[in-house]
Write a protein that binds this DNA or RNA. Structure first.
Lengths: 359, 359
DNA sequence: CACCACCCTGTAATCGATTACGGTATGTGA
DNA sequence: TCACATACCGTAATCGATTACAGGGTGGTG
């Protein structure tokens, strides 16, 4: 396949060029393309031929201006380098592609200011809808959402508590409970928790789930030792030291997410503690790599793909309805629909086992 | 932050609304916004006030139509779920943000047909430039690139052999050599290679680097045993079985990438072979997770961030030059610039050690 | 007072599509 | 032959911005 030194066509042909070439009006060309109104077979053929020879491709930007819809969605993620998010991106993109929508990806890179900029950029570009996949409510996000009113927004993996935007998320409380019940059923009695910063609503719910499981098992939920990480490997490494100090006889740890769990395992190893022989670890999210690390992580799986699909579908509905009522999808004067909460499930792998003492 | 049941503004205010509100013409509003021509301070203030009270935000789509530039870049990646790509995405996005450009992310999902669709979608939307970050030339991509002429394209991490598009990539041959020399210097003499499908040009270059190192060390390069994986963990798991069968006394393996290496380690473990005690493993890419797995992978690091930055910068230059010559950035009638090749480096971690026999 | 320069500002064309409306050609029936 | 329905197709307005060009004030100068 050799490069042919052909000088580039620098301006794309327009519908007018096609019309001239085919000897018809632009209206006819447009009609042939859209297929809405029928054209005489002859004319149709001439237009098609002209399109072919000119290599014409209609300008989506002109079309967007006229039709007042861009057929693109904005997708804002907290941090694309966190392996949880590519899975959401994948799911959203697949669903969007099915509907012939493009996705404009914005990576907040854990910087609230940057997120806000991106949100503004998206409405400036008149995207048809915005999906925010975040792992925690940022102040700035909240303020922005409260201010803006013109683009439908749906939330994935978190819900703005008092804002009542359409939202879908995994059942965090159930997840915390499942993880804890699993450890309990293996015989663990001294369980600690590696959490995430408090601004992260999901972290709070997961913690409540843990406490609930503890309580049901007859333990005092207030005795649960919680140390805050940062949702990254490094945070897990740091936090587990503290946890060990405060609970030297610990046998099981529930982690906020898989990355935190991986950090915990690394540190424990370096301290000479075996996982799961000495200490069992449960992660959260079931990111791909949790199956690849040693030991493969027992973790809580969320229906990520379904969440992505739902978000796009919901946005699609909102777009259809956008002509009446509030563009944000809330019913006028009401508090809007409650978030959709999907069940999660435990994925049992090799990072958990019965505590030594029980054996 | 409570939801205020305010009925949504369904149509965004336009520049005309602002003009009416401020009692000036649209031209004046436009001038105040762009700041190009000065306006009388009084007028300016009135316009600004009108913008504020109406919550006006200029439509990027109208602006794009008039200015014939969308200030957005298309970024096509082979597979966003492969942890190598988020790093590129991050780098590209950062560089784009600095120039006030948006990025439209397209995930090929390892499907050539889908990639081609996306490429068409990007030119339809009149993006200002396209970055293709791929791990191997697909037939379809090549054909598309040969056909299309109107949007500047730059390639990251691969070069279309005979197409001469601007491209940047890590020095694959050097990487293969470095990995091999490292094993050689540790005392390994029986080295095998886990590669990727042959359509992947980078895989071929890395293999050549390995052979070169072998040859320099006085070994017969043709005796190198190569087994093909798929660039994923599963492929590494499968391929290493075959490699072991064909080279039972192997002590060192150079892998096409980190994912393959992780798969190899997993299988070796399950077979009772220790890494690095029995067999040393070298990966490639230095993805974040290669430091988190056990053992942390010795690997070849590519300057990903720099590659992303370069791609955006180059595209920026092309945009500036787009008025003259070939929009693809090639010099008229020539074969264009050769690809930029960046040095890579060895990251020594714990998956390699001297072979047992040498101890 | 006349004239000119300069500073602002408005009018209207334009970017590339879509589509309401109306016109022409053709065919049908009386 | 005429009235009228039907099928195609063209004219022109429109989407929301930008900007070339021109016009109206104002002030300075002769």
């Amino acid at each position: 396949m050799v490069f042919e030194p052909q000088v580039g066509i620098l301006v794309e042909p327009t519908i007018r060029d096609v019309a001239k070439q085919a000897g018809v009006s632009t209206a006819t060309v447009s009609r042939v393309i859209s297929g809405a109104d029928p054209a005489k077979p002859q004319t149709r053929a001439r237009v098609l031929a002209a399109i072919e020879t000119l290599g014409y491709r209609p300008s989506a930007v002109a079309r967007s201006l006229k039709l007042r819809t861009t057929r693109t969605l904005g997708l804002l993620v907290t941090d694309i380098q966190n392996p949880y998010f590519p899975e959401i991106v994948r799911a959203v993109e697949d669903a969007a592609l099915e509907r012939n929508l493009a996705v404009m990806l914005c990576n907040g890179a854990d910087d609230p200011g940057r997120e806000e900029n991106y949100l503004d950029l998206l409405v400036d570009r008149r995207v048809d809808g915005i999906i925010i996949a975040s792992s925690g409510l940022q102040e700035r996000q909240g303020a922005w959402l409260a201010r803006q009113r013109s683009v439908p927004v749906v939330l994935v993996n978190w819900a703005a508590p008092d804002m009542r935007l359409p939202a879908i998320l995994g059942d965090n409380r159930q997840g915390g409970r499942l993880a804890t019940e699993h450890l309990l059923s293996l015989g663990h009695r001294r369980i600690g928790h590696l959490s995430a910063p408090a601004r992260n609503a999901a972290a709070g719910e997961r913690r409540d789930g843990i406490r609930e499981a503890l309580e049901r098992a007859g333990q005092d939920p207030d005795s649960l030792v919680v140390v805050e990480g940062d949702g990254q490997v490094a945070g897990g490494e740091r936090a587990v030291h503290e946890l060990l100090k405060r609970m030297p006889d610990i046998t099981g740890i529930v982690c906020y997410n898989d990355l935190t769990a991986i950090g915990a395992v690394r540190t424990l190893r370096s301290l000479g503690r075996q996982v799961p022989a000495d200490i069992s670890i449960v992660g959260y999210d079931d990111i791909a790599l949790s199956a690849w690390v040693d030991p493969p992580l027992t973790t809580i799986a969320q229906p990520t793909a379904e969440m992505g699909r739902w978000a796009v579908r919901r946005l699609g509905e909102l777009l259809g309805l956008a002509e009446v009522g509030d563009a944000r999808g809330g019913v006028k004067g009401s508090l809007g629909p409650p978030p959709v909460i999907l069940p999660v499930e435990l994925r049992e792998r090799a990072s958990t086992a019965a505590p030594r003492e029980a054996a």
